[in-house]
Amino acid sequence: MKWLKLLRTFKEGGVNFYRNGSLTFVTVTVLTVSLFAISMALLLLYIANMVMIEAQNRVNISVYFKSAVEESRILEVKSKLEEYDEIKYVKYISKDQALEELVSYSTKNETIKKALDEVEENPLNSLLVIGAKSPDQYARITEAVNSSFFSEDVSNINFYDNEENIRRISNVILMTKKAGLIFGAIFVLIGILITFNTIKLTIYSHKQEFEVMRLVGASNLYIRMPFIFEGIFYGLVSGLIVVVLLFGASYLISPLTDGNIPQGNALKVFWGHIWIILGGVFGAGILLGMVSSFIAIRRYLKV
């Protein structure tokens, strides 16, 4: 009996969904717009975050050693530095490697080539490239290097040249995260409110029918279930449309993100997270439709 009633209310929800015509169209449109706005906000936030992380990874400081310092000494310093929690990686570049890089670079630049030809000896110093876990830690790392046991061996740290850039990037990252969260939260809230109110109006238009259903002997659950199923159908159809729209949006913004995020571009992010996107969009749509219906119908089932 329970299964029979469940099946009947499911079927009834489906029949209502397509017989309601324009009302269904409006509700699905509103739900689609809300879900799309929410997921677009989250997707952009995610991509912006990725761009930031990529930029962050490209930031580092170089500690140049005086030419008299032995390689073993530099490697000792390297292993000391690697012990710090704030430091993500330390890369050793010997003066020979530095020269090699410069030579290969100089094939494109005549002036450097000429300069190198004139100096017979390797004029470059060995260096350690340090990457921090967060860009706001470079100042502290530089300070630590300056006051360390090997500060005498250091000829120059390029942090001071990059200080302004590093500070700017770290500020932008913080700002983006904050703004993204605030906008994301606003979109989610607006989406929920609009959807809830639209479904409330849809159910309001059936108000008089509830009385009839009750008087014919339908239990509250039997009256409610078709509307909850209808809400689920709204969510499913809107979810499907939103996933297609998200694909389109990722496709369109892909060229802008090419090479600026670790995954490659926005389209790759879309495919890489397809299961999360499907689950999230359909889950949010169904939940929004179902819960809105459930709450909206409650007030009409008092008698």
Binding site: L4, K5, R8, M213, V216, G217, A218, Y222
Partner: peptide, 10 residues
Amino acid sequence: AYALEVAGYT
């Protein structure tokens, strides 16, 4: 039919 459906008729 609705009056019968709510009462669980087959």
